[in-house]
């Protein structure tokens, strides 16, 4: 059992801290040394995926048990790399894309249908996309320390009405997937009033960080009272640290839905093996790795199979979501509103 905590949607988070930090990138030659007879399946994934604490190693072991093949994750920013490589890419499949980039990924016309039945997923929204296949999901939420904050806000309005000395840390929508989700969340809750909402939130924002990790670090260091993270974040503290002091504040307006997807490439030279990997994604062998491997909800797994302590999480009743086209339509103007409100 790999018990490798990772926040739900870290794909960009690791990428986010690039530059001076993550980037170094090292490595001599190809990752593993495949046996000559084995087929190698190359899957592009975000950096967090391949790390010892990500879900990658467990998934690799589980999948290789079903085939005589070698699954290799190539980590980095998968879409960025794909866009640069175009049709010459060596990838067979890509895993760990977020819905905010699926539109761009789709437009490359490099992807083939996944061929799975997505009618009975365990997600709060219906999924009809036949190209991108979800494998885990979660919702954005503000996490607080329940020993320090007695009356957490129960709605977005209540959050905006809190005194200005309650400090929150959020992520930048330009550099972070969770920051982008927050921007879309506010847009969906407040619509044309979004800029006004941001203006009310502004004095409470301690700082805006590049990625999730920095924000979360500031929060656990005690610099901030609340942090923008995920509904499932407390699960890590509960299960791995036996710490029940972190909770998600549940807002009555609903919480923004975040999902990670996989897709297979048209250009693959081994379509059968790639298809086998796509078939594997929704299987219980893969899905049971997700809760404690990626600290998020599996896309297709009965609640009864979730770790027991997941029942201790605060779960929102309502889920908000923009389809990729809707999100693309509001994205730029929402960013301008965000920028204008926080610049003042």
């Amino acid at each position: 059992m790999t018990h490798r905590p990772n926040p739900p949607s870290v794909p960009w988070q690791n990428g986010e801290m690039t530059m001076k930090l993550t980037s170094l990138a090292v490595g001599l030659t190809l990752a593993a040394t495949p046996l000559a007879a084995q087929d190698v399946l190359t899957v592009y994934a975000p950096d967090y995926f391949g790390s010892e604490w990500g879900p990658g190693p467990a998934i690799e072991t589980a999948f290789e048990a079903t085939c005589d093949c070698d699954l290799q994750f190539v980590t980095g920013d998968p879409l960025q790399r794909l866009l640069l490589e175009g049709e010459r890419t060596k990838a067979d499949a890509v895993i760990g894309l977020n819905t905010d980039v699926t539109k761009k990924a789709r437009e490359t016309d490099l992807f083939a249908p996944h061929g799975q039945d997505t009618s009975d997923l365990t997600m709060p929204i219906a999924w009809n996309d036949d190209v991108f296949l979800p494998f885990n999901w979660g919702q954005t939420a503000f996490i607080y320390d329940n020993t320090k904050l007695d009356t957490p806000p129960t709605s977005f309005d209540a959050l905006l009405a809190m005194p200005d000395d309650v400090k929150i840390v959020i992520q930048d929508p330009r550099t972070s997937i969770s920051g982008l989700a927050l921007m879309l969340w506010v847009k969906q809750v407040y619509g044309d009033d979004a800029q006004n909402a941001w203006e009310q939130l502004a004095p409470k924002i301690l700082t805006v960080t590049k990625g999730w990790s920095e924000s979360y670090g500031l929060f656990t260091d005690g610099e901030a009272d609340m942090v923008l993270s995920y509904v499932t974040s407390p699960a890590y503290h509960i299960i791995a640290e036996d710490d029940l002091t972190k909770s998600a504040a549940i807002f009555e307006e609903g919480h923004y839905f975040m999902v990670e997807v996989a897709g297979q490439l048209k250009t693959t030279d081994q379509p059968e093996l790639t298809q086998a990997f796509m078939d594997f994604i929704l299987s219980p062998a893969f899905q049971t790795i997700i809760p404690e491997g990626n600290w998020s909800f599996p896309a297709k797994l009965d609640d009864s199979l979730l770790p027991e302590k997941f029942s201790l999480l605060n779960i929102p009743e309502k889920t908000l979501f923009y389809s990729e086209d809707q999100a693309a339509a509001v994205r730029d103007s929402a960013l301008e509103e965000w920028r204008a409100a926080l610049r003042q």
């Binding site: 170094l24 790390s51 190539v74």
Partner: peptide, 23 residues
Amino acid sequence: ITLFSDPQRATLPMEMFRLMSSY
């Protein structure tokens, strides 16, 4: 060079960030 990274051969700063991003 994020684009050149090899998951099996992380450097120390990379490893530090992976730890941070996994809580």
